[in-house]
């Protein structure tokens, strides 16, 4: 069962909670994008914390000290996820800039009447 030892997971949960609050209650498009980036950061933190092993070193054998290693698969997944996050962030920001030029504001409630 859980204990205070699970604190890194709880940190990821706090980040995800802040991100969900932003996504639900904020109307500004830039703040919305910040919320999505924060949610992604929380998922990355959760993955890396999931793969940590007590006292383990980096999973690289070059001149490594003998002993146990942390799990390599979550690190590889997070490495892929970071690059995807950067590109998706760029795409979302471009769409926000484009929307602002079209409609004059970036409020998701007011810019409903976007013209082709």
């Amino acid at each position: 069962m859980g204990s205070l030892l699970n604190f890194p997971f709880l940190a990821a949960v706090i980040l995800a909670g802040i991100a969900l609050y932003i996504l639900i209650f904020k109307k500004n498009m830039i703040k919305f994008i910040m919320g999505i980036a924060l949610l992604e950061a929380s998922v990355n933190l959760f993955f890396v914390a999931l793969g940590y092993r007590e006292g383990g070193g980096a999973p690289i054998y070059t001149n490594s000290p003998a002993g146990i290693m942390v799990l390599p698969v979550p690190q590889a997944l997070v490495l892929t996820s970071i690059v995807i996050g950067v590109s998706i962030l760029a795409l979302m920001l471009s769409m926000a800039i484009r929307t602002y030029r079209h409609t004059g504001n970036i409020d998701t409630e007011k810019s409903r009447r976007m013209k082709g």
Partner: peptide, 8 residues
């Protein structure tokens, strides 16, 4: 490489 820690 040999299995285990090695100079690389």
């Amino acid at each position: 490489p040999p299995t285990g820690p090695n100079p690389g």
